[in-house]
Write a protein that binds this DNA or RNA. Structure first.
Lengths: 148, 148
DNA sequence: TTACAACATTTGTATATACAAATATAAAAT
DNA sequence: ATTTTATATTTGTATATACAAATGTTGTAA
């Protein structure tokens, strides 16, 4: 992709601006691809993220702040996000008996089943997005991302 | 950054998943930094983008679809975005005399002045975000971004 | 034991965004 | 000339998100 051409500017951009804009453009592609992959399951990228976090708990319940800490993009409103998963029957929610301030969330069997299908769709999308990278390039790319 | 640690997973992620998650995490930092830089000017990243597009027109007016084509993140609702710039006095909007379907948008002097200040804030943020990259690494990074 | 501070979540509200349908104008086809 | 199609923007509506204030619970100190 030619960044300057894509955003329709005649001037040559300073390398730093160009890099950040380039980054944002690629981010749009990634967001769009992930969104499309999840569309058939009627969950957002954030909801998918929460389901994966809950599965990763291996049966242990997670409360809202635990979930929020592990999320890729933190949100101010995990309550309402979990509400939506609850409506779909993908999670259970109970008040923690030992500390009634906390809410314990667990993934349901239905949630796990749906998640397995989502995993496949996401994996395919990730592979598609990265199909032009070889192993060395992926390693290099992650090292460069670490510089941020 | 250790991606696995950041998202609190015990398992080692497949390299593709890890890369995409890493990408999203860095994107959060970038978005947050840009947002903070623009906050004092009370414009969103998208509004800033539109102002830069308008300045890039060098006096020539741009209509809504032109703007939309050049935007980093396309939006379904450029009308309302321009509304906000209009309220701030940063742009003018007139119906195109030769084709009354079109709306011609131009940046005002006030908009240009504000934009100059925003430029500085954004430039500083970009430099900060990328301060650990040297020239060769930036080149390499852009080449890798091109593989998406 | 009562008051106060800290914690965890929820709710209210304002703003943002996505998507589709509606409006208005212009160009093309009959 | 009239209808149809295409173009450009606007509006309605539903959903999403951000942020602050409110609620309910627990722990601590007087």
């Amino acid at each position: 992709m030619n960044v300057e051409k894509r955003i329709g500017t005649k001037k040559v951009l300073p390398i730093n601006s160009k890099t950040i804009i380039h980054y944002m453009l690629v981010n749009n592609s990634i967001t769009e691809a992930i969104g499309k992959a999840l569309k058939p399951f009627d969950v957002s990228s954030q909801q998918f993220n929460v389901l994966r976090i809950l599965r990763g708990q291996d049966g242990q319940a997670a409360n809202l702040s635990t979930i929020n800490n592990k999320m890729i993009s933190k949100m101010s409103n995990t309550t309402r996000l979990v509400d939506k998963l609850l409506l779909k029957g993908y999670v259970n929610r109970i008040v923690c008996p030992s500390n009634r301030r906390k809410i314990e969330i667990t993934i349901t069997e239905k949630g796990k089943k749906a998640l397995l299908k989502m995993d496949k769709a996401i994996e395919a999308t990730e592979n598609q997005l990265l199909h032009r990278f070889n192993g060395k390039e992926l390693k290099q790319f992650n090292e460069l991302l670490n510089k941020f």
